[in-house]
Design a protein around this nucleic acid. Structure first.
Lengths: 160, 160
DNA sequence: TATTGTTATACTCTATAACTATA
DNA sequence: TATAGTTATAGAGTATAACAATA
């Protein structure tokens, strides 16, 4: 039974964490058959929006250590989704590009993401989803969360 | 700039994951000075609501492997927040209880949680927080998320 | 001397399965 | 023989720091 009056608890913050985790977990399940993980998707997305960027740039955008990026990029490159091209100005750095297959993968991911959202938000109609989006966006802006960048890239580990 | 018409993307599902992660991360930071982690808090909370339960029971409630529980319980017991008492009926099993210090810790955690929620939801007024809570609760119910049980107990690992 | 990307190392946390003591 | 809790082991993933090539 919920308290209707009195000192407010932290139900909302906990609900946010619960539902947010559920969203991440279901999404991870949905892309697993593509042999992709959420960080893979985040990397592909950022590269697609800023092609030619260096691994350094990518690390800054995602707040990831460059050394942690290497393994992800190796795998994406081996699978032909992403390319490391020599940088014209600096032979130390690599310019990152999506391959055609990488762009195709992003389209598939987009479709999967929409299905995922429909499943997750099945309890709400369109108007309610719009309401929810607006409220969450206000929090995200206030919390200085960069659009399209998941804060989990930084440190990892949620409950423990 | 947001698309006002056309095929919907998955912005809402991503926003939920972003804000949910932010909630979890900020909460973890807030309780870190108490030398507690979110799973510690989850355990204390469940025990407080069902004192006398066994480690087996606790594992089922949290969807955690019993072997994973051991280290958490060891630490909480050593710090005097939780007690393993002999079970009257079965000498194999332990009945879990909070100590007075454990109950005190939960009060502190409750205060911290409210501060946390106020910080996280600073962009919204009371009415808006109520709206948001209702919408999220509808999703949580539809997704069969148990009240007060974080789905992250199960498997862990969000971005990867 | 500083910087880009890579590799090496140590550490944390987990699931699985073996183990003990009771039942 | 089965069950409660514990311990052992191996694996996944990370941050940190050392490293080679280039600037």
């Amino acid at each position: 039974m919920a308290r209707s009056t009195g000192k407010p608890g932290a139900e909302l913050a906990f609900l946010l964490s619960q539902v947010g985790y559920q969203s991440a977990a279901l999404f991870a399940e949905r892309i697993a058959p593509l042999e992709l993980t959420p960080p893979d998707v985040g990397i592909l997305k950022v590269v697609s929006e800023a092609e030619g960027l260096s691994q350094q740039d990518l690390g800054v955008k995602l707040s990831m250590f460059p050394s942690r990026l290497v393994a992800f990029l190796d795998q994406l490159e081996q699978r032909g989704l992403l390319q490391r091209r020599p940088s014209p100005a600096d032979r130390r750095s690599h310019a990152l590009y999506l391959s055609p297959a990488g762009r195709e993968a992003l389209k598939t991911i987009g479709r999967i993401s929409r299905e995922h959202q429909n499943q997750l938000c099945a309890a709400l109609n369109e108007a309610e989803r719009g309401q929810l989006t607006k409220l969450l966006q206000r929090i995200a802006d206030d919390q200085k969360l960069a659009p399209g960048i998941h804060p989990g890239f930084r440190k990892l580990q949620m409950p423990r």
